[in-house]
Design a protein around this nucleic acid. Structure first.
Ligand SMILES: [Zn+2]
Ligand SMILES: [Zn+2]
Ligand SMILES: [Zn+2]
Ligand SMILES: [Zn+2]
Lengths: 150, 150
DNA sequence: GCACACCCTGTAGCTACTATAGGGTCAAGC
DNA sequence: GCTTGACCCTATAGTAGCTACAGGGTGTGC
């Protein structure tokens, strides 16, 4: 099949398929006399594997590793597969916590402006301005017991 | 003061300061005879403003807008400031939800491998492989609720 | 006259694509 | 044979927000 058909079957853009080939994630297929890529059914599965892992937020480097383990299922223990997934879980979890803190900070900042008023009087702009001069702000409250050096 | 001193006072890298200047976020300062940038105290505040907004996850485009409102505090209502912050909150919130779903999916996948075994027998690799062939997987259940489309 | 810290510009790298520009191939229809 | 249109090719540049050089110039102390 041609690249367009592979794209259709996997829901992956043609450009992305070529990109994966350049990056060494998808093996280069045979070529027709005129240079068109000719894919086999196995390529559909390999590309699905990549897209499935991507949908789990894995990096291309991690997917390369996983695909390698998959292609060469050695009789070794699967520790490294587990470690890879565990690392990904930790990364995602810490991103969640970072974003949750960010959300709290943004809500605190947003709380400084309620009633309609002008730009010159806006509590949000005033908070940002004061914080630029080193004053404490609603969004970044000082840590417990410790004062922010300034 | 020179750029290194500004960097020290704001905790911002020298390269980043030059980058902000190129991007039009920080006004270009005066230059010494030998071409060194010479910053005024006002620059410290402006850079702090940028870094403070960055720490809230705002994009440079949004910060440019905010800084503009801040420098020209017109007697207009502050609707657009609020809209900007609200958009940011929405973005952060939807990122959190996306990542939380990702975490659930990764934990489900991780649950396919418990006891020590080989790569050839690993439930994680097997799940990923089966999903590549179109079979249902632990990480992407067919429907969120009880109802299954049919 | 030299060491060393600091400064300058310009460019390339990072992630995972996406979007062109500028061309070649192939089947159908006239 | 010729044209149209869908498809394919490579190569390059762009996205966000920095970061890291390379290759040079400047300023001060000894
Ligand atoms: Zn307001
Ligand atoms: Zn704050
Ligand atoms: Zn396992
Ligand atoms: Zn899945």
């Amino acid at each position: 099949m041609q690249i367009g058909e592979l794209a259709r079957q996997t829901g992956c853009e043609v450009e992305t398929i070529r990109y994966y080939e350049r990056e060494g994630l998808l093996p280069a297929p045979a070529r027709s006399a005129s240079g068109y890529r000719r894919y086999e059914p196995g390529h559909v599965e390999q590309l699905n594997f990549i897209r499935h892992c991507r949908s789990l937020g894995m990096s291309l480097a991690d997917i390369r590793q996983l695909a390698d383990y998959h292609r060469h299922p050695a009789p070794e223990p699967c520790d490294r597969v587990n470690a890879l997934i565990d690392d990904q879980i930790r990364r995602v979890h810490s991103q969640i916590e970072t974003l949750q803190q960010l959300e709290r900070q943004l809500l605190a900042l947003r709380g400084r402006c309620h009633s309609p008023h002008t730009l010159a009087d806006c509590g949000i702009l005033k908070t940002l301005e004061d914080a630029s001069s080193g004053e404490p702000c609603a969004c970044h409250p000082p840590a417990t017991g410790k004062k922010i050096a300034g």
